[in-house]
Design a binder for these strands. Structure first.
Lengths: 152, 152
DNA sequence: TTAATAATGATAACCGGTAGCAATTAGTAA
DNA sequence: TTACTAATTGCTACCGGTTATCATTATTAA
């Protein structure tokens, strides 16, 4: 329940885009999950309530939402992209995940958050200067096996 | 020129695998580049000198080489996997890259290396304990635009 | 209400990567 | 050296995720 439809509507209008039913529904799905859903998974949830909305439309709108800065796209090495509503995250633009390579479960961790952000900032500014880069994003991911998958 | 063919040959034999021409050639390509090549790119270089070696063989052997711990596979978000000979890296099992989202250039940086490794270790052990994970790997990547792509 | 045009949905295509399978070949044992 | 045999290769067809095409539909400014 991060943003009312009215708010979303404005964000689209401000860019000269339309606030269509598919967009409303996709945002609703993203706003009502804690998971990192793939396009296919989002489509399935959308499809359950609105069977008339097509897969292509979901893909297209995820791109649009990413461009609008509403959604972030990740790749965790399982062969598909996964999406997260930016408004749902505790700290914007800081993406760190713990990924189980067995069951593909993804955990957003927040240990050492402040320390990590500070470290990232330092490296970012050093790298920007040294390599003349305009750094816009970063990713920290740990891979391993969760308790269940270790046992299995 | 990291390893002589004899050395590679032993590593394959020790696992009951054969040291074939395609494997020799693929390793040679990987050993003679500083870039992070995709399977397709490796295939093209292989193909130039040995047109009889097929694309499938390249894919298959990259998997084999990864299993053997000779090669590391990365994904930088450009839709394909990229490979690096482990022997060529300064510090094994520590992967940090600066990626230009414009021209896809990838820079291996080594600033704050020791500090970063120490920090990673700390987070890793904390996350392992807290989430009962068996952490085997991690990735740190910065994304942005390089000097050229900024201007363009 | 209507005109203009952004957005949609169905289909086909694309692209990186993989499976199946007959033919070949590296490495061992005679 | 030769013969054997399983590992490996190279086709081809196929797969799953994603994107292009294009005629149709629907949002929104006037």
């Amino acid at each position: 329940m991060a943003k009312t439809n009215q708010k979303w509507h404005e964000r689209f209008r401000d860019r000269g885009l339309r606030f269509t039913q598919p967009r409303r529904v996709i945002l609703d799905v993203l706003d009502n999950t804690a998971d990192h859903l793939s396009a296919e998974e989002i489509y399935m949830r959308v499809h359950k309530k609105y069977p008339n909305i097509g897969l292509t439309t979901v893909y297209r709108n995820l791109i649009t939402l990413e461009r609008m800065g509403i959604v972030t796209k990740f790749h965790f090495g399982d062969g598909c992209h996964r999406f997260e509503l930016i408004e749902n995250k505790k700290k914007p633009d800081h993406h760190h995940h713990l990924v189980c390579t067995g069951c593909k479960r993804i955990i957003d961790y927040d240990d050492f958050m402040d320390e990590e952000i500070e470290y990232i900032k330092k490296v970012e500014s050093a790298l920007s200067r040294k390599h003349s880069f305009n750094i816009t994003d970063h990713v920290i991911q740990f891979y391993g096996l969760c308790k269940k998958c270790k046992a299995a």
